[in-house]
Lab assay of single mutants.
Amino acid sequence: MQRVNMIMAESPGLITICLLGYLLSAECTVFLDHENANKILNRPKRYNSGKLEEFVQGNLERECMEEKCSFEEAREVFENTERTTEFWKQYVDGDQCESNPCLNGGSCKDDINSYECWCPFGFEGKNCELDVTCNIKNGRCEQFCKNSADNKVVCSCTEGYRLAENQKSCEPAVPFPCGRVSVSQTSKLTRAETVFPDVDYVNSTEAETILDNITQSTQSFNDFTRVVGGEDAKPGQFPWQVVLNGKVDAFCGGSIVNEKWIVTAAHCVETGVKITVVAGEHNIEETEHTEQKRNVIRIIPHHNYNAAINKYNHDIALLELDEPLVLNSYVTPICIADKEYTNIFLKFGSGYVSGWGRVFHKGRSALVLQYLRVPLVDRATCLRSTKFTIYNNMFCAGFHEGGRDSCQGDSGGPHVTEVEGTSFLTGIISWGEECAMKGKYGIYTKVSRYVNWIKEKTKLT
């Protein structure tokens, strides 16, 4: 034993070699072989497995989906700052455009905790909710729209109204504003409101030439003092309507412009014939205590009207009353817009006519005020429907199939267009061939041609 100890002390290297040989010859039971080890760690190889990531292109799944990435790591994937920024906006807080917040056709661009709407022409605001041009839906104005110097929408209202708090709607500024039905039992019968379409306001006024200088022999019209197929109006439903009495009662109609003036057809009036105007009328054979009678003290036909040349060209006249009318729910003026808007309103496509005229061709006159909704007829169809001249200051309205029309005794009465609950004068009943005849239409004086003249002559002093 002493000898062994001496050998170990003198030859430590020998001992180490012996131990190493023993270990190498022993069977290893701690580690699995290569094949079995792979069965336990069965993990798919990654895209760049075996390579240094710093030297390969980034992978979106590896960089940002398996674990949260930084902007720089995302930049490695896209290799483009702009594309990385677009991805980053949604990656950080989701897609803010998912709810489609942009209105009126706006395009949404996502941002971090926010979004941006790219608005089409005519709109602005956070969600493109603000109209900035009158060309689109009248700028959301209830009545009139004008573009300011910086191309912003400025709404306005006709006389007797003021802008509401929203700067879009119009509200009454006087007790009985024009064009409004205020009798409670008839307010439910107000005709369907007309909503502004998209309009090209630059070209809204037709490029028409008034044929002022045409000389033409007097034409022989049949029954051209021209509501057939209409309905009984309720008291106060058309408070701007008046009836004219002269040699015979209810020979023509008219509309209240203001307390002192009536507008009617020029062919209705004769110099030297006494005319009485009755406002607030409903049943011409009954006294309903809503009527107001006034005498006409002055007749002003349009300066281009000449019955000797043509009885229905420039067929418009103004009547001055001896005493002002007292405005109330049964006696209310009709609204008159400017030339541009009167023309736009007419193009809405349908209007209402009213009167006490004959209820059928050569038949009896109506006792109760009649009204009828009539569609506008395109000019080409209008011209083809008659052998008589249709001037540019006239328009056609009615039904091709016949059966409904204005008729004798309705002449001078109103053709009105309702705009968001307020009625505007767009025409004056003038003439036609018979009444409600198939293929024939009622012919009306186009008020847009005469609004400046009306307003100039009827100013209240």
Rank of each mutant, 00 (worst) to 15 (best):
Q2F: 09
Q2W: 15
R3F: 12
V4L: 13
M6L: 11
M6F: 14
S11W: 08
S11A: 15
G13E: 04
I17D: 01
I17Y: 13
I17K: 00
C18K: 01
L19Q: 01
L20N: 01
L20D: 01
G21F: 10
G21K: 03
G21D: 03
L24R: 02
A26N: 02
A26M: 05
E27V: 04
T29K: 09
F31H: 08
D33G: 12
E35T: 13
N36W: 06
K39Y: 05
I40H: 15
R43G: 15
P44S: 13
K45G: 11
R46A: 15
Y47F: 11
Y47D: 13
N48L: 12
G50E: 09
E53W: 06
E54N: 06
V56S: 14
V56G: 15
Q57H: 10
G58L: 07
L60K: 09
R62A: 11
C69N: 04
E73Y: 05
E73T: 08
R75G: 15
E76P: 14
E76H: 15
N80P: 12
T81C: 04
T81Q: 10
R83K: 08
T84E: 06
E86Q: 15
E86C: 04
V92L: 11
Q96S: 15
Q96K: 14
P101W: 03
C102D: 00
L103V: 08
L103N: 11
C108I: 01
C108K: 02
E116V: 14
W118Y: 08
F121H: 14
F123W: 15
F123A: 05
E124H: 14
N127F: 14
L130M: 14
D131M: 12
D131T: 13
T133A: 15
N135F: 15
E142S: 13
Q143V: 00
F144H: 02
N147A: 14
S148Y: 07
S148A: 11
A149H: 10
D150R: 09
N151H: 09
V154F: 12
V154P: 04
V154C: 05
C155F: 00
S156N: 05
T158I: 09
T158P: 04
T158L: 08
G160T: 10
R162S: 10
R162I: 09
R162L: 10
L163E: 02
A164W: 03
E165M: 13
E165P: 14
N166C: 02
N166L: 02
Q167K: 05
K168H: 12
F176C: 03
P177A: 08
R180Y: 05
R180V: 04
V181T: 15
V181Q: 15
T186W: 08
T186D: 13
S187E: 08
L189G: 10
R191D: 09
A192V: 10
E193T: 08
E193G: 12
F196E: 13
F196A: 09
D198G: 13
V199Y: 13
Y201P: 09
T209P: 13
I210A: 11
D212L: 07
N213A: 07
I214V: 12
T215I: 07
T218Q: 10
T218W: 09
N222A: 11
F224H: 10
F224P: 12
T225M: 09
R226C: 05
V228P: 06
V228S: 10
D232F: 09
D232H: 13
D232Q: 09
A233T: 07
K234E: 13
G236K: 06
Q237T: 07
Q237H: 08
P239W: 01
P239R: 00
V242N: 01
V243F: 11
G246W: 00
K247W: 06
V248D: 02
D249Y: 01
F251E: 10
S255F: 01
V257A: 03
N258P: 01
N258Q: 02
K260T: 01
W261L: 01
I262L: 03
I262Q: 01
T264L: 02
A266I: 02
H267N: 04
C268R: 00
V269E: 01
V269C: 07
E270A: 04
K274M: 08
I275V: 10
T276I: 07
T276K: 03
E288I: 05
H289V: 14
H289P: 12
T290Q: 07
K293I: 07
K293F: 14
I300A: 03
P301I: 08
P301G: 04
N304Q: 14
N304E: 11
N304G: 10
N304M: 14
Y305E: 02
Y305Q: 02
Y305S: 02
N306P: 02
N306S: 04
K311E: 06
K311N: 06
D315W: 00
I316H: 00
A317S: 04
E320I: 01
E320A: 02
E323A: 11
P324M: 04
P324Q: 04
L325F: 13
L325D: 01
L327P: 04
Y330P: 01
V331L: 02
T332F: 04
C335G: 02
D338E: 08
L346C: 02
L346V: 07
G351C: 03
G351K: 02
V353Q: 04
V353R: 12
S354E: 03
S354A: 15
G355Y: 14
W356C: 03
G357T: 12
G357I: 10
F360S: 10
F360N: 14
K362S: 13
R364M: 13
A366Y: 11
L369I: 07
Y371H: 13
L372Q: 14
L372G: 12
P375W: 06
P375H: 14
L376D: 01
L376C: 02
C382I: 03
C382L: 03
L383F: 12
T386N: 13
T386D: 05
K387N: 15
Y391E: 14
N393Q: 05
F395G: 01
F395S: 02
F395E: 00
C396D: 01
F399R: 04
F399N: 13
E401N: 08
G402L: 14
D405H: 14
S406P: 10
Q408A: 05
Q408N: 11
G409Q: 13
S411M: 14
G412P: 11
H415M: 04
V416W: 09
V416F: 07
E420D: 14
E420T: 13
E420L: 11
S423W: 14
L425F: 03
L425N: 02
L425R: 00
T426K: 00
T426R: 00
T426A: 02
I428W: 05
S430N: 10
G432I: 04
E433K: 07
C435Y: 03
A436K: 14
K438W: 12
K440D: 11
Y441T: 08
Y441M: 10
G442Q: 14
G442Y: 06
Y444H: 04
Y444Q: 01
K446S: 09
K446T: 04
V447D: 00
S448I: 02
R449H: 15
R449C: 15
Y450W: 01
N452A: 14
N452T: 13
W453R: 01
W453K: 00
I454G: 00
K459C: 14
K459W: 05
T461C: 08
